[in-house]
Design a protein around this nucleic acid. Sequence first.
DNA 1: CCTATGCCGGACAAATTTATCCGGTAATCA
DNA 2: TGATTACCGGATAAATTTGTCCGGCATAGG
Lengths: 147, 147
Amino acid sequence: MFSKACEYGIRAAIYIGQQSADFGRRVGLKDIASEIGSPEAFTAKVLQQLVRERLVTSVKGPAGGFELTPEQLRTVTLRQIVVAIDGGAMLQGCALGLPQCSARQPCPLHYQFLPIRDQLNEVLGSHTVGELAGKVHDGLGFLKQLS
Amino acid sequence: MFSKACEYGIRAAIYIGQQSADFGRRVGLKDIASEIGSPEAFTAKVLQQLVRERLVTSVKGPAGGFELTPEQLRTVTLRQIVVAIDGGAMLQGCALGLPQCSARQPCPLHYQFLPIRDQLNEVLGSHTVGELAGKVHDGLGFLKQLS
DNA sequence: CCTATGCCGGACAAATTTATCCGGTAATCA
DNA sequence: TGATTACCGGATAAATTTGTCCGGCATAGG
């Protein structure tokens, strides 16, 4: 469905969001990677992408780390994260990979996939990172297995 | 969404199906690759997988090639093709890649993605290759751009 | 039986994705 | 100012996916 990079990016963003919202504290890379079960250096690359797109905030130096501002918690959607990392192909392109697929010249699956794609866009676009962080806070969502 | 291999596999299967259903004729690799716009040798690998799974039939020698039997046209679903090539991860696994994701321990997106995954399974499982080949025959679906 | 056709199968190569390493730089604090 | 912390960025490597090549094998037709 999503690339590994994107999976890590989403999980990291939600974890950062949860820590920002619940404790107002920044989290370091080591902490993030250990909490979401991802390779540290690779996660750093992914987070850099999100920082460049202003979807996550980073602060260098002692007591630094990653955080989500209140505005980011409120406005950044999952869709923005997915697009920043994986691009829009999965959210727009043809299911069979045809470059010219459209209503005028649809692939045999075109109309069958329209509602699926719509729903995917709806789900990704209508949930903010802050909202999902809330689920984790409430124990309604997990980012790694219970030990 | 799907891997390249899977895209080629689906397109090839539909094309083979259309030729089998409409003209009762086998099609060679060269023909298939040219008609669906895919690399020939790579398409061969993908088709071999489908033949091994008995989703497509192949015949060697002169006048040989690939075909879909009437039974295959009637019973082989898109879902079987996708599973044969890409495996079931996209149709079953967690959207965030968590190995332990389940109702007991859901990821923050678990319930949001359930309907999407259900619909995907529904669409893939309820359309046979023969049905989609019919669309192509009726001019309601295309496998490559008009020139 | 011989030959041509066309799929099968393994080895190989290129491209992309995933993952690691390390020096640089910014920020904090003494 | 010096030292420590922690993200940044480029280079590199491993793994997977995508793509190619070629000899082998089965089949049809003469």
